[in-house]
Amino acid sequence: MSERKIRVMVAKPGLDGHDRGARVLARCFRDAGFEVIYTGCHQTPEQCASAAIQEDVDMLGLSCLSGAHRYLFPQVAKLLKEQGADDIVLVGGGIIPDQDFQPLYDAGFKAIFTPGTPLDTIVDWIKTNVKPRS
């Protein structure tokens, strides 16, 4: 009688404190039946990666609205990889210009969600693309 649950982490790397989206998503994920770990604001990439590993999450969602995603997001991907945890599905969100999508995909991100994405779209994407690992 196994009871698999999707575990996700919502993290805010960098110095920007615009956490409206991150917090709305955390609630939305809970209501979708996931177990959600939220890190709070102002995390370093190292903190994001190590927390994701300690919590054994299936997905790590990073939110950044300051434009620093270009450094911070690939940095988290790199750290996960170094620790053999690149099977954690990485997604990004925030103010991310179109031309930054490809470099993020190349860095290992599986999806980018920008402002205006309906919550259901994100939840459906997770249900389709994120499976509890064993």
């Binding site: 809970r30 979708a32 039946g33 959600v36 770990i37 939220y38 890190t39 709070g40 919590e55």
Partner: peptide, 14 residues
């Protein structure tokens, strides 16, 4: 109701 949870304690220990 949903079986979901927000696990918020670790925020204070980050």
């Amino acid at each position: 109701f949903t079986g979901g949870a927000i696990l918020g304690d670790r925020i204070r220990m980050q």
